[in-house]
């Protein structure tokens, strides 16, 4: 599975599939249970299927909207070189990129913003999967480094919502080098004593998983999210075995000790706020216990004393 078959081809089909009827936008079909969902219900449920609980993919802007308190601000990202390899497959990468930029209204696959989550200041980097499969090239590397610097500057935690097919092939080894580059970004945040929290969303694979996205102080994921290093097809071809049920899903990773928790979208905001509060304000909510005061323990016995 990759971003072309998953996203680009269906998108192209819809683009050229003739004029779109208005009702198409009013009803959505859940990709998991195939039930129809009225658009307003879907919106209200944060794009989680009210019938089966399936978490539909959402875009970066929407992610920021539902996570931050109102008033968050998106920041401008430094430009990365455009098509550094002059890459061409069946189409020119430069054309694919320009098209994605025009459609998404952003330079690359990550949006960076700062704001507050239930009053706790935070910087968020959110992946846009519909932008070339959320793939990581120099632009995405730049976005994560910028987000890390902003977090340090603002003395705020960095939260990354991932959704990526992995490294961007069209930037060759430059994409590969975004792995160490983004790992450095995580070090900057951690060395400043700030929490680095990763929320793995559907899907997160390849070079993104194998770099910054596995280095969170805390690793969260949305239910059912596909998370892994190698693609399922590649694994099947290599080991010639059927993949186990639920393989590479968030719950599977939780079971195997790779995540801290799987959090429903409706609870994500409150969870993040609580985590930030616990890590950043250890004494803020200290309460005096009622009842008899507990006597203090005696001081430790001097060295050499017999028990």
């Amino acid at each position: 599975m990759n971003w072309i078959s998953e996203w680009a081809l269906p998108k192209i089909k819809t683009l050229f599939g003739g004029p779109r009827e208005v009702p198409d936008n009013l009803w959505h079909k859940c990709p998991a249970c195939e039930q129809m969902i009225f658009h307003r219900d879907l919106e209200r449920a944060l794009h989680v299927c009210p019938h089966c609980g399936h978490h539909l993919r959402i875009g970066a802007k929407q992610r920021l909207d539902i996570t931050f308190d109102p008033g968050w601000q998106r920041i401008e990202l430094p430009k990365a070189p455009m098509d550094p390899l002059r890459f061409r497959d069946q189409r020119r990468y430069a054309d694919r990129l320009k098209e994605a930029q025009a459609r998404a209204g952003q330079e690359d696959a990550v949006m960076v913003a700062h704001g507050a989550i239930e009053g706790h200041r935070a910087v968020i980097a959110a992946f846009e999967f519909s932008f070339l499969g959320g793939s990581m090239g120099a632009g995405v590397g730049e976005a994560l480094v910028t987000a890390a610097k902003l977090a340090v500057l603002q003395d705020a935690p960095l939260i990354v919502f991932t959704a990526s097919g992995g490294a961007r092939m069209q930037e060759g080894a430059i994409s590969l080098m975004q792995m160490p580059r983004t790992v450095i970004a995580t070090r900057m945040v951690k060395e400043a004593g700030l929490p680095f929290i990763v929320v793995l969303c559907d899907p997160t694979t390849g070079g993104v998983t194998a770099s910054f996205a596995m280095l969170g102080d805390l690793q969260l994921a949305e239910p059912g999210a596909l998370i892994g290093f190698a693609g399922a097809r590649v694994i099947e071809q290599t080991v010639r075995e059927k993949l186990p049920e639920g393989f590479q899903r968030a719950e599977y990773l939780l079971e195997h000790g790779i995540l801290d928790m799987v959090v429903r979208r409706s609870e994500m905001r409150a969870t993040l706020a609580r985590l930030i509060g616990l890590l950043r304000m250890p004494e803020a909510a200290a309460e005096v216990a009622e009842g008899e005061p507990v006597p203090a323990l005696p001081p430790p016995a001097p060295a050499g004393a017999q028990a």
């Binding site: 590649v234 080991v239 186990p244 590479q248």
Partner: peptide
């Protein structure tokens, strides 16, 4: 890196 079921289960990416 080896693309295998066990490798994924034991955290290849991490």
């Amino acid at each position: 890196a080896f693309p295998g079921i066990e490798a994924e289960a034991r955290g290849q990416a991490e």
